[in-house]
């Protein structure tokens, strides 16, 4: 017996619960080693409407069980994305969602409008949580009103799935989650990286040229799990759990805690097959329990 790992995220049916996280898989054209059958969906590296150079190096630094990054959303902009990547995506057997960013609410809407209807663009992950840009990014995700405005601006310009990616660097994540749900998000992704810092004791200055960066990897897993769980208790739309997932057990923790699916990011750097390993491990686990679908997995989701 083989179990069906399919997942329904609103109108979007995915063939499995494991999604490649934005910024850790490029545009899907690299990492030839991954067995793509395991990939339920791919979220592209974050883009803005216009090209962006990104931040000066050093952009990454390893920390205990994690890493800080300040890439600064380097990207080619919407036109190059349409020309170079979308045609490739349209031939793939899993959806690609574009991680969209803006410095203003209008810019998010404009970007969604430009990409809407383009073959290969399977939906949007609205990034209101990037800690590595001077304008926009995380600042929209800090304020429920601004978060709702951005979500609405995107919602009004597309019929494709709209996921909104939340920042953990906020007082009450539930409040932001509820605001984006009310504004029309089809799913909520929790979470992006935690704001962090590391000092170089030789130079007496931060190791990252951007001063601060976003912390990812196993170091954030329990923090991210708690936040994803809190969001899952708050909203009705599906929640996609993200943060430090590297093994099938890690992913199952997020699923039991109320997430409909998960994203795997940093783990891919150490193991290009991480997504296949997590997917196959979940399948083996379901089979060992004689469960035919993920719906049979018991969830811990008390409603307040």
């Amino acid at each position: 017996m083989t179990s069906d790992l399919g997942v329904d995220l609103g109108h979007l049916r995915l063939r499995g619960p494991v999604i490649a996280a934005s910024g850790t898989f490029g545009y899907g054209t690299e990492v030839p080693l991954l067995e793509r059958r395991a990939l339920a969906a791919l979220v592209s590296k974050g883009i803005f409407l216009r090209p962006r150079p990104g931040t000066p190096p050093p952009r990454i630094v390893e920390t205990p069980s994690g890493m800080l990054n300040a890439i600064g959303l380097q990207g080619p902009g919407a036109e190059a994305l349409l020309r170079e990547y979308a045609p490739l995506w349209s031939a793939w057997d899993f959806p690609v969602l574009v991680n969209i960013n803006g410095e203003t609410v209008e810019e998010y809407g404009e970007l969604a409008a430009r990409l809407d209807g383009i073959p290969g663009v399977g939906g949007f992950e609205v990034n209101i949580s990037c800690p590595n840009v001077e304008q926009g990014g995380m600042y929209f995700g800090n304020d429920p009103r601004a978060a709702a405005d951005v979500t609405r601006a995107v919602r009004q310009r597309t019929t494709l799935p709209v996921w909104v990616k939340l920042t953990p660097n906020v007082g009450d994540i539930g409040e932001v989650a509820r605001a984006v749900e009310d504004a029309g998000a089809d799913a909520v992704c929790a979470v992006n990286t935690f704001l962090g810092m590391s000092i170089d004791l030789h130079a007496f200055r931060p190791r990252l040229s951007f001063r601060t960066g976003g912390l990812s990897g196993p170091a954030i897993r329990p923090l991210a799990l708690q936040l994803a769980h809190q969001v899952a208790r708050t909203v009705q739309v599906p929640v996609i759990g993200i943060g430090g997932i590297a093994s099938p057990e890690d992913a199952l923790e997020f699923l039991v805690a109320g997430c409909a699916a998960v994203q795997v990011g940093t783990a891919t750097f150490a193991d290009p097959q991480a997504i296949a390993r997590v997917h196959d491990g979940i399948a083996a686990y379901l089979e060992s329990k004689s469960w035919t679908t993920l719906k049979e997995l018991p969830r811990y989701l008390p409603r307040d």
Binding site: G23, V31, P58, R59, I60, N69, I71, F269, P272
Partner: peptide
């Protein structure tokens, strides 16, 4: 440079 992935996906190794 410092490297995250070594395979081209993270943009950490900027030159």
């Amino acid at each position: 440079t410092y490297m995250g992935c070594g395979t081209g996906v993270c943009l950490g190794c900027a030159v």
